[in-house]
Design a protein around this nucleic acid. Sequence first.
RNA 1: GCGAAAGUGGCGGAACUGGCAGACGCGCUGGACUUAGGAUCCAGUCCCGCAAGGGGUGGGGGUUCAACUCCCCCCUUUCGCACCA
Length: 938
Amino acid sequence: MPGYSPHDIESKWQEYWEQNKTFRAPDDTSKPKLYVLDMFPYPSGEGLHVGHPEGYTATDMYSRFQRMRGYNVLHPMGYDAFGLPAEQYAIETGTHPRITTERNIANIRRQIKRLGFSYDWDREFATTDIEYMRWTQWIFLVLYDTWFDPSIEWADPDGKKRRGKGRPIRELPIPDATRAQGEDAVRRYQDSFRLAYQAEAPVNWCEALGTVLSDEEVIDGRSDRGGHPVQRIPLRQWMLRITAYADRLVEDLDTLRWPDAIKEMQRNWVGRSEGAEVDFYIGEPGSLYEAWRILRRLEGFPAESESYAIRVYTTRPDTLFGATYIVLAPEHPLVDRLTTEAQRAEVESYRQRVASMSEEDRIAGRGEKSGVFTGGYAINPVNGERIPVWIADYVLISYGTGAIMAVPGHDQRDFEFARKFHLPIRAVVLPPDSWLEQMRVSREDYAARVGELASAFTDDGTGIQSSNPGVSLNGLPTPEAKRTINAWLESSGLGRPAIKYKLRDWLFSRQRYWGEPIPILHEVDAEGKPTGLRRPVPEDRLPVLLPELNDFKPTGSPEGPLAKAAGWIWVQEGGRKFRRETNTMPQWAGSCWYYLRFCDPRNNARAWDSEREKYWMPVDVYVGGAEHAVLHLLYARFWHKVLFDRGHVSTLEPFQRLINQGMILSITYRTSDGRIVPYSKINFSEGKAAHAETGEELAGETEKMSKSRGNVIPVDLPLQQYGADTTRLYEMFMGPLETTKPWSMQGVEGISRFLNRAWRMIVDEEAQGMRLNRKVLDNVEPTNEQLRALHKTIQSVTEDLEALRFNTGISRLMEFVNFFTSQAARPRSCMETFVLLLAPFAPHIAEEMWQALGHTESLAHAPWPVSDARFTLEEAIEIPIQVNGKVRSRLVASITAGSDDLERMALEDPKIQRYLDGHAVQKVIVVPKKLINIVVSP
RNA sequence: GCGAAAGUGGCGGAACUGGCAGACGCGCUGGACUUAGGAUCCAGUCCCGCAAGGGGUGGGGGUUCAACUCCCCCCUUUCGCACCA
């Protein structure tokens, strides 16, 4: 065999694995399972760059390692193939998205296969597969068939008591009054409770994309994909009631082994807050108001406020005495009623201005407060004071009740607003002295000067100027004041504790072609007009296929391009005529449950078999980019919980352990005048980069890979130059999996050298045929030193693989090779063990050397080496001796040496004696096997 | 502004629960082999200093016999959120 030839070896073994189905994961429940999953890639037309396979490399190494340790490893791969790019391409070129998608999948599959990943290719699928889409639609119907019962109690699989669960819609109690109105009324009632429902809501409409987007897909008022401007317009849309699951989505995070940052981001996104709802009577103090108060005291706080009261939400009910005005969102339904004739023109023009503003303008105008007085007043229920009602765009209709009580003394936004419009500012919480000092105001002056300070005090303090005949918060610390006022509000029927979320329901319909059709039929009357009643497509009629179209352009209307398929949209069923839903699902739909389908991907009768789901789930290790921290991971968890509630899955959470791989950066080289120089025009030598044409030395900067920077390194580049094993090793050697790190083509070179050295350590590269290196010997016993090196390597590589510390694992293997290449006699047993240790990292070269060592079977399922502590312990070790914390000498001692012996030896050490001369030894610290520190007087 | 993470040689990075800072790799320097070397092998490589020695993990302070590691203050970078009442 000549030298190490990666390309021959790699294609040989990739073929072998494929033919022998080496990595098929049998549904063999007698073995312990491990489910190792990569986040679903979207097959883009660009192909993969070196950053993409980082996570795949990690999961592959881990899977191969665990397979050798006896686990039945489920390690699948598939494609999230619906989505906008293929459709945009279709609009531009007329090529059907299915064609583009298939072409892109073929390319990404080729690249992934070239890296030698150990996927079970028998389980591969794409979300666009008709058989897969069928079950995506089925899950939509499960959501459609489910309502959330907030009060039901149940015990989770760990025996923990829970409240609130999704239940079949037929179990929804129907009020008698509704039932009396007949069948249609009952259906409408049910529709209003379903987890998948239609509602008229202000949505993010993106003109350029011709579709609406979810809140999660809008960033700074522009679309996540493409950066097009987004407007808020009211539209009738499909929504998923994710808010019903808000508490469980937050609570269950505690049970997951996920990065804290991601958990925190999910918590923030759900944005749970605790506070109170309070009603403010609209009108004048007087007998009507008094009558209302009495009624409220008798009947309590109603589920919805009367039309003559404003309901606000606040997290600081303890500051109610400081509420000096009310602000409604401009869209609030009570604005019309409250506006006086004198103010009407101004109010209307303000409302129109706000309505016509794009999301982006709204964000840009933030900071500078704007608003208009309605002319109307309401009464502060704690002190009977008549306070003005304003409208302002800093109050959002979509959060809380769309109305706030403004406490300018203790809320920064209200403070700025009050200052601008000269509204009264009242202190009701006394800040701690440290804050007062900072503001240069005394405790006594605070209440009088609160309006002149630089900012409002918004933290916890002590109640002041807060009492009425029924309740006093004076002197109470904020948490206690909250409890006290809440109790008073409840007993007087004026308010109640409430919990709100930033999370909104998930806007689920898209006006696009390349997505799963929503499997719903709309009833129409004789004239073909929708009646507002809907029917799900029966399960046995799924999937609803996409109609063939020649023109994929968005219609610019809420109907979407599917409305153009005249032959498709009308359906006759049981003598009645229906119109198909013409919206499609968002791209997230397919990736919400693919991990479940991988458990049983070829099932034609069900989405998955329960037994298989029970065996394989949950996903034990899930690796992917942090960009999915909120979107995909929150949506998938939501679906999973609904499926759990409906008895379709056995676990509360889908992904037990989550790891975010760090981004791989690249180096961008620029000339002194800032022009980018592509890699093809750079000479790398003497550690420097020089322009190939001008010879100018180029400055390199580490930056994100992007086409515009010309620094994208396609994965095919290192694959062609060095092969898969080197590429895989370098992907992991750069640094810890989770951190951001730059790719260096010079670094790859070093890895290639390592594999060559490993090869020569075992294989005779001079020989014609495949022969072992002559220094590899059968009939010698390893020396103690060799055994120690071997077992230390086994130990640390095993630990590193368990902890997914691939970079240090590779370092240990390098140390092994460095050591054994200096050994003239290399016992064959040591070489065999090394090959097994190398196998998860660089499987092709390992298989080839395994074969050279005389094995006829693949090592993919060979047992993983076990280290023996007898060999890793050294009999004698070197221990540093410090004097006052500085290393001054070393001694060699037996590991069994006791503290007293070590202390004596250290003090007798001639070098140490020099340092002790003239100083008194105060203390000697001996850490056996580690170090000795002698503390002396100065 | 709020929240989170991170700052270690020329570079990527090691250092498990406080115990020899810089493993491993890149780059660089010198040497060997060679017709040749962008192959391979050997030696060296944190900084200052000929040396003895001294200094050193973003900066400042602290705890400790001992701090990259723990505590306080500050600086910088990256990421996320951003009028959420």
